[in-house]
C-alpha cells in the first residue's frame, strides 16, 4: 500500500459517500445517471469475485464490501425508493449503456492476462469501469444546472483513478516485475474521459461560477 493508492481509495470512498449523502438526505437523484450507477454495480460485482475466496487484508475486504454495498443500494434507491425515483430523469438518461457491456466483454475475452473465468471477469470490470462514466457525462451536458453534490461526486470519481495512476507509477519503480499494461491503459483512458469535465470544474471553481458543461 502506498500513499497514492490510499488517497485514491479514500477519494473513491468519498465519491460514494457524497452520492449516498445526496440521495439519502435530500432524497433526490437529480442529475445522477442510473445507467452509470448500474454499470458501476456490475464493475464491482465482476471485480470482487475473489471476495470470499482470497483474503488479502481486512482493509481490502472491508472496502470491497463498502463499494459493493453502496453501489447496489444506490441503484436500488434510484430504481425503487418511492421518493428518490421521482427525481430520476429517465428521459434525459438515455445513453444505451448495454452497448458498452458487450464490447468490454468481447475485449476482455480477447485481451487479458490469463484466460481464466476470474481473470476475464476482472479484465472486463476494468474495461467497463473505464467507460462507465459516459452516461453520467452525457447526462451532465444535458442537465443545465449541475448541483454541487453531483459535480463533487463526478470530480471525486475521476480524481480517484488519477491518483491510482500515480500509484501504478510508484509501484512500477518500487516493485520489480510490477507490470500491468491492461490496468494502466484502461485506467488512463478512464481518466482522460474526465479531462474536459475537470477543465470546466476547475474553471467554475476558479471563477466561482456555477458548473456548466457546453452542450
Amino acid at each position: 500500500m502506498n500513499i497514492f493508492r490510499f488517497a485514491g481509495d479514500m477519494t473513491h470512498l468519498a465519491s460514494v459517500l457524497v452520492l449516498l449523502l445526496k440521495i439519502h438526505t435530500i432524497k433526490s437523484c437529480a442529475g445522477i445517471s442510473l445507467k452509470t450507477q448500474e454499470l458501476y454495480a456490475l464493475v464491482f460485482a465482476t471485480r470482487y469475485l475473489d471476495l470470499f475466496t482470497d483474503y488479502i487484508s481486512l482493509y481490502n475486504t472491508l472496502m470491497k464490501l463498502i463499494f459493493l454495498g453502496s453501489s447496489f443500494s444506490i441503484v436500488w434507491y434510484i430504481r425503487y425508493h418511492k421518493i428518490v425515483r421521482r427525481s430520476y430523469d429517465k428521459d434525459q438518461d438515455t445513453f444505451r449503456h448495454y452497448f458498452l457491456v458487450l464490447p468490454c466483454l468481447l475485449l476482455a475475452l480477447l485481451i487479458n492476462e490469463k484466460f481464466t473465468f476470474r481473470e476475464v471477469m476482472w479484465t472486463f470490470s476494468l474495461y467497463l469501469e473505464a467507460v462507465a462514466i459516459l452516461p453520467q457525462l452525457v447526462l451532465l451536458q444535458r442537465t443545465r444546472n449541475i448541483d454541487n453534490l453531483t459535480g463533487q461526486y463526478v470530480f471525486l470519481l475521476g480524481a480517484y483513478r488519477a491518483l491510482y495512476i500515480l500509484n501504478w507509477i510508484y509501484r512500477y519503480f518500487t516493485e520489480p516485475h510490477y507490470v500491468h499494461w491492461i490496468t494502466w491503459i484502461s485506467g488512463l483512458v478512464q481518466t482522460l474521459l474526465y479531462a474536459d469535465f475537470f477543465y470546466y470544474y476547475f474553471q467554475s471553481w476558479k471563477n466561482n461560477v456555477k458548473l456548466e458543461l457546453p452542450a
Binding site: D9, H12, D50, D54, I56, N60, K114, R118
Partner: peptide, 10 residues
C-alpha cells in the same frame, strides 16, 4: 500470490 490470482488493488 493467491492461486495465480494476483490482484491486490480495489
Amino acid at each position: 500470490t493467491y492461486n495465480g490470482y494476483h490482484h491486490d488493488e480495489l
